[in-house]
Amino acid sequence: MAEKNLIIKASNIYKSFKQVKAVNGVNLEIHSGEFLALLGPNGAGKTTMIEMIEGIQKPDSGEILIKNKKWDNHSHELQKILGISFQETRFIDKVTVWETLKLFASFYNLPNSRIEEIIDLIDLREKLKSYTENLSGGQRQRLALGVALLNKPEILLLDEPTTGLDPTARREIWSILHKLKSEENTSMILTTHYMEEAEQLCDRIVIMDSGKILTQGTLDELLSHSKSSEIIEFELNTDFEKFNFESKEIFEQTKNDKTKKVTLFVKSIVDILPKILNYLKENNLTAKNLICRRLTLDDLFISLTGRRLID
């Protein structure tokens, strides 16, 4: 993509808290209209990274350019074009949904008609007169999203917008963001530890762990660049040690002590499955709950770090 479409460019970002290297040399680029996911487990440095882009934290070193401007001398301009929602924001308890939106709209000098549009978008019309303390978790997150969208931001920065929500509430947030993507030319960075969220919503996925970017690309790129693309999983009712099947077609195998689960990363299930079944039979091993499936981001993360995204 052309340089001029580059809307955020973060180069060589470092940020430490005492001993912890929260962000440890990150380079990030986002283009106009692009939805980007920062995917990683708790403590990966997602919040620290996104808050540096938001201008709320300052990097120890490195440079962040938003539309070629820096926070140091353009903070007022940048505040106007960003839409932000923090990992967890609570609004004033005894102030209604309408009043909360009205307050934030006044900071941007927006008319009531814009508040009306937002209310329809976040589907909170029945809750207009409810105090924010009486909203459900999903409604509260939708309000936070609505507040972030009030000023028609060019860049939307959402930190874990669906963490802690039930699947229905999560899908409601997703559908708002889908709608946004189809109707406005907004760029977005969203942090999450749900791979499904990154897959569903984002053009490009950046996988982070321990302050570093492990890999990035579109979902297809990530999955096809990985040597394996399919997975075979089963549980053994005896010791792992007995399972010693070696093959060039198995790129990687992990054995989980707790769940007794064996995971094999393979290129093609169809080719190798018969051989494995044979091997099990010859060695008198019984496999339970055998599953064959496509590689997921979670598997990719496991093969990169040895850990799962969500513990």
Binding site: E54, G55, H76, Q79, I92, N151
Partner: peptide, 16 residues
């Protein structure tokens, strides 16, 4: 209370 709710930083992240 507003700081503990992260509302303070949410508000100063706007042009307020």
């Amino acid at each position: 209370e507003k700081r503990s709710k992260k509302l303070l930083r949410r508000m100063v992240a706007t042009p307020m």
